[in-house]
Design a protein around this nucleic acid. Structure first.
Lengths: 333, 333
DNA sequence: CTGAAAGCGCTTACAG
DNA sequence: CTGAAAGCGCTTACAG
């Protein structure tokens, strides 16, 4: 555990530094005896290659950048777990960038990422706009840095791979479930802010509603409890409703709380469903029905896909769609 | 936005590369006119210093490593937000390392961190053992890498700074609150796994219980809902209880759910309180009383403190204790 | 205030 | 299979 350099190892193992480098990076190019001698010295000295020198000389960093908007959303943390687990297996380090909402910040971050010479980028921002997408594309094309969209998709593009579930289908299915229960006035509670995946959930909802000749009703609110509670209270004064699908579990639970305060019985009067199957859904009473999204897997598969891209392996598919489930608990019947 | 190097800038600005370097890093050492000319060229060329070359030459990385056990704990994500915000202000990049539970993994990670030549380390693992602490100390002393313990403390040491709240006091206060309500059979529900901060909460609980000449009762369970639900159900068969303090909000909510299923009224029959003031506490019905822990601030202050350490500024205090609050809602009376 | 030059610790053709 | 040497793109004493 001293600050040994490659020279120290070379000296002690009586070889040149080129051989030490090969013993580490291309072991098959070194005679077994030599290799073992070198490796033993490395062990003895606790030698670890200096990451900067390595990066500078090889133009590879074995580092990936992960771009996240606001870590506190439940899905982000769980995706990070999946990403980190796979990154560890393939020996990549993870540089974390949390975006703030300032205009232009994302562009700065991306420039920084280019300067850091990461080998790949995982893009977890599902609020992506056309402008941002173009910028991503520039980075991919001009700098040849592979990018994977994690838990988001961008409509008219197959040149940047993505890993997600079929949110449109999931939105359709959960809506269909409520329709099959006989619900007529089904609202989708989405967010004020525009997220790619929520657009898809809405699209699926609309498809189901229209197929059943019902009236589509989309309400937009905030993810913040204090704000959406007020919205929901107002809502009950003015609307007839017997079904609600919220784009996030926590919003669904928040709605349930207001509903019950307004003397609505669940699921007798209203069915409620959410998305994700977080702890919120399990801890709520009644327990929340929802679409189960394999968030950990989305993170893990994205990272795995990125490793393939970084190794220039060919991909079978550029849009990976994982399976989802409907978890029906106590807020649907 | 091309891959300009410092040579390109120097050439176009008609100065040497040393001057370009100074214009960026020590602007006061460059004549204003020259500086501006250089800066303009930098802008024109979209030049960004290569992070590896810079790191190699300067032996500084402007990167900090953050060590986290399991990102999915609610507190971790929120601390990351605080850390990232301050890191951005001081222009540090964040390397994220999520520990797995394998024996020896943490040591590997720390070696990797040393190799990556980070300028500082934020240690968010509150399951720290004596052995791990010694290892941290080695890193600090042998490699001179500053370390800050974030939201955890280690008992007999002031040589590694920490940022936290006074968990012992918080544990005392919330227990005292239940005692003042007239509760006699107060349980602390802690975790099977040993976390530094939970030990402190327990210590505070014990101090209050003993001061009131009550019998201390500590129960240990899992953070996983499926497991602790079984525990709690069993618990109700065998115990008399009129107060419960859980070390995490989610555990408190899980307990509440089981309690109500066992026809216990809250807060008439039992008072319940948690720790952290997460969304779980706000979304639960009845709304959970708890200790409010300023998690974001703990992250932010840690990062700020680390920047001071990295700049070799002197510290006023080596143990920073932030203020906490008691948030009394509907599960206490 | 500015430049020439050494050096940071690696990788990788190129020879042999 | 192994070594000598150039080079990656910066920083930083040292001179001037």
């Amino acid at each position: 555990m001293s600050k040994a350099t490659i020279y120290d190892v070379a000296g002690k193992a009586r070889v040149s530094l080129a051989t030490v480098s090969r013993a580490i990076n291309n072991p098959e190019k070194v005679k077994p005896e030599t290799r073992e001698r070198v490796l033993r010295v490395i062990e003895e000295l606790g030698y670890k290659p200096n990451a900067f020198a390595k990066g500078l000389a090889s133009r590879k960093s074995t580092t990936v950048a992960v771009l996240v908007p606001d870590m506190s959303r439940a899905s982000m943390a769980e995706m990070m777990n999946g990403i980190a687990d796979i990154a560890r297996v393939y020996k990549y380090s993870v540089l974390l960038y949390i975006l703030d909402n300032e205009e232009g910040h994302e562009e700065d971050v991306l420039k920084e990422i280019v300067a850091a010479q990461v080998d790949g980028i995982l893009y977890l921002n599902d609020e992506i706009t056309a402008k941002q997408f173009d910028f991503l594309r520039t980075i991919k094309n001009d700098y040849k840095i592979p990018i994977v969209l994690t838990n988001t998709v961008y409509p008219e593009s197959d040149d940047i791979p993505s890993v997600s579930i079929d949110y449109e289908k999931a939105g359709y299915e959960i809506t269909k479930k409520l329709i099959d229960e006989g619900r007529k006035d089904i609202f989708m509670v989405s967010t004020v802010r525009k997220y790619m995946v929520n657009d898809l959930k809405e699209a699926g909802y609309l498809r189901a509603i229209e197929a059943a000749s019902l009236t589509p009703r989309i309400m937009r609110t905030s993810g913040r409890i204090a704000i959406n509670t007020d919205h929901f209270n107002e809502f009950f004064r003015d609307h007839k409703v017997d079904g609600v699908i919220a784009v996030r579990d926590s919003i669904a639970v928040s709605f349930m709380n207001v509903a019950r305060q307004n003397h609505v019985r669940l699921p007798d009067d209203i069915s409620v469903a959410g998305f994700q199957n977080t702890k919120y859904a399990q801890l709520a009473r009644p327990q929340l029905s929802c679409v189960d999204v394999p968030i950990y897997d989305i993170g893990a598969v994205s990272m795995r896909l990125l490793t393939k891209l970084m190794n220039e392996e060919s991909l079978e598919e550029t849009r990976v769609t994982l399976e989802h489930d409907l978890v029906l608990r106590q807020t649907t019947r």
